[in-house]
């Protein structure tokens, strides 16, 4: 019993100190954000490696998710004689949920894990230390541009994902299953609200971008400086990001769609 309490206390303290370190880290990164503009070239490189290079996986996944939605939505709706409502079903699911959430999960796997590994490696090989000794602040030189790149890329990627998904649903619904193309889009416009659905989805993806990038960079910095430590941190990034995204999604959905 005492052992259990001690264990509980120890893990509680562990989590608390982790949260503390992560918050201090976030604070310092945010304070260094002026470097994003001053060193815009570094920021460009990071947007390229975080955003542009995630584009392919996002477009392909978006297309397939949209096509599956079109197919499954049609099968369900046709039972009610409401196949015309397909556009609304596809668009709402994408814009509200699947766009931001799936993009965030893919982003965590593709860009987040790479960020963690990169920074973990820089720490392990003393590159961060060397920068400090050369009087270069790693927060401004390394973390701030990466953080901004993730924060900026996520909503853009999510929007691309949703847009491509809508087209995927169109290809299957209209092209293959014969839903009228006019009603596909008119139904879509009838049920999808700009502020309530599209803007809320964008807000979600902004929050996800913030959290996933934060987790990824912090995990890299907090990794134990060994190769095992890096691989553990990389896994941690994906797991923690996925949990954070899904948990936050629930909270945000509750707050925004009442």
């Amino acid at each position: 019993m005492i052992d259990f309490l001690a264990h509980l206390g120890r893990s509680g303290l562990h989590w608390l100190s982790l949260l503390g370190r992560a918050s201090i880290f976030l604070f310092r990164v945010l304070r260094s954000q002026d470097a994003v503009v001053r060193r815009y070239r570094l920021t460009l490189i990071e947007i390229y490696s975080v955003g542009v290079r995630s584009l392919l996986i996002i477009v392909v996944s978006g297309l397939f998710v949209g096509m599956v939605l079109g197919y499954q939505g049609y099968i369900t709706l046709v039972n009610f004689g409401a196949a015309e409502a397909l556009g609304g079903v596809v668009a709402l699911s994408l814009v509200r949920e699947l766009g931001p959430v799936v993009t965030a999960l893919l982003f965590a796997g593709r860009a987040g894990s790479a960020l963690t590994a990169e920074i973990g490696l820089m720490k392990t090989t003393e590159q961060l230390s060397a920068m400090e000794m050369m009087a270069v602040d790693p927060y401004r030189r390394v973390f701030a541009p990466r953080f901004f790149a993730g924060f900026l890329s996520m909503p853009l990627l999510a929007a691309i994902f949703s847009a491509v998904g809508v087209m995927g649903g169109f290809i299957v619904g209209v092209g293959l299953l014969g839903v009228d193309s006019g009603s596909y889009f008119s139904q879509m416009q009838a049920v999808t609200d700009w502020r309530e659905d599209v803007v809320s989805g964008v807000i979600k993806s902004i929050v996800f971008g913030f959290v996933v990038t934060w987790i990824a960079i912090f995990q890299g910095l907090d990794a134990e400086p060994t190769s095992e430590g890096i691989s553990r941190a990389t896994t941690q990034t994906v797991v923690a990001s996925a949990l954070a995204v899904l948990g936050l999604d629930f909270i945000l959905t509750g707050l925004m769609f009442t």
């Binding site: 490696l121 590159q127 230390s129 060397a130 000794m133 050369m134």
Partner: peptide, 17 residues
């Protein structure tokens, strides 16, 4: 400012990869 007047050679070199 002090560190600019100080060089440090790390054991592994710590070159930026």
């Amino acid at each position: 400012a002090l560190r600019k007047r100080m060089g440090m050679l790390f054991q592994t070199g710590a070159l930026l990869t």
